[in-house]
């Protein structure tokens, strides 16, 4: 099966690639673009470790075919830092101790970012609703919730 050409924007950079039609976005990001921030923890959409944002929506990149994202705007954890400054969520996750092993962190932050993108002042239950899309094995979620709350209170 021949590779197919596709163009999209990742972290403000336009890329054109030739990908297998049965290649997932997660594979393309990790293997071709070397953006290894998105992780594969289950491969079946259960955990959220591979979450990236496509056209302002959070997606499990392990469940998406790369060919689906023609012309899309993709944001990954690697693109959150702007002009050398960490995104407020990245800062808050560090300052509030919301990071332990870090394997869920990129996906968790992207899910949280997409929440703030559509609702800049979510309440606690909205935060919990959103981040309950992602599994974390280390933190018990308390400090993750507090980190997102912290960003909302500052914005």
């Amino acid at each position: 099966m021949r590779n197919r050409k596709i163009s999209f924007t990742v972290n403000n950079e336009k890329v054109t690639l030739h990908v297998r039609p049965y290649e997932t976005l997660l594979e393309t990001l990790r293997e071709r673009l070397l953006l290894t921030g998105a992780k594969e923890a289950c491969g079946l959409g259960s955990c959220g470790a591979c979450t990236v944002i496509v056209n302002r929506k959070p997606v499990r990149s392990c469940l998406i075919l790369t060919l689906e994202v023609e012309d899309a705007i993709i944001e990954t954890i690697e693109g959150l830092k702007k002009n050398g400054n960490l995104h407020p969520l990245q800062k808050a996750f560090m300052e509030k101790g919301a990071v332990q092993c870090g394997f869920c962190t990129p996906g968790m932050i992207m899910t949280a970012k997409s929440l703030l993108d559509r609702n800049s002042r979510p309440n606690r239950s909205e935060i919990i609703e959103a981040i309950s899309s992602n599994l974390c094995r280390c933190t018990g979620y308390k400090k993750i919730i507090e980190a997102v709350e912290d960003v909302c209170s500052k914005e």
Binding site: Y22, G43, L44
Partner: peptide
């Protein structure tokens, strides 16, 4: 986890 070979078409 990789997908088996398949083709993709958008309608």
């Amino acid at each position: 986890m990789i997908l088996p070979k398949l083709d993709y078409k958008k309608a």
